[in-house]
Amino acid sequence: MIRVLFVCLGNICRSPMAEGVFRKMAADEQLADQIEVDSAGTSDWHVGKPPHQGTLSKLTEYKVSSEGMAGRQLTKEDAEGFDYIIGMDAENIANIRERFEDADHQRIIRFLDLTSHQKDLPDPYFTGDFQETYDLVLEGCQSLLELIKKEEFAK
Rank of each mutant, 00 (worst) to 15 (best):
M1I: 11
V4S: 02
I12H: 03
C13A: 12
R14G: 06
G20C: 05
R23D: 05
R23S: 13
A27K: 13
D28N: 10
V37Q: 01
V37A: 08
V37N: 00
V37M: 04
A40N: 06
G41E: 05
T42R: 10
D44I: 09
G48R: 07
P51D: 11
T55E: 10
T55P: 05
S57F: 10
T60A: 15
S66E: 09
S66A: 15
E67S: 13
E67R: 09
M69Q: 15
A70T: 05
R72E: 10
T75W: 00
K76L: 13
K76T: 14
E77A: 13
E77P: 00
D78S: 07
A79P: 08
A79W: 02
I85W: 01
N92P: 02
A94G: 05
N95D: 14
R97E: 15
E98D: 15
F100A: 05
E101I: 11
D102W: 11
D102C: 12
D104E: 15
Q106D: 12
Q106K: 15
I108Q: 08
I108V: 15
I109K: 03
R110T: 02
D113K: 05
L114F: 00
L114R: 04
T115P: 04
S116Q: 13
K119W: 01
L121V: 13
P122M: 10
D123H: 01
P124R: 01
F126Y: 15
F126W: 12
D129T: 06
D129H: 07
D129L: 08
F130A: 12
L138H: 11
L138V: 08
E139Y: 01
E139C: 06
G140M: 04
G140C: 08
C141V: 05
L144R: 02
L145D: 01
I148M: 04
K149F: 00
K149V: 00
K150P: 00
E152M: 07
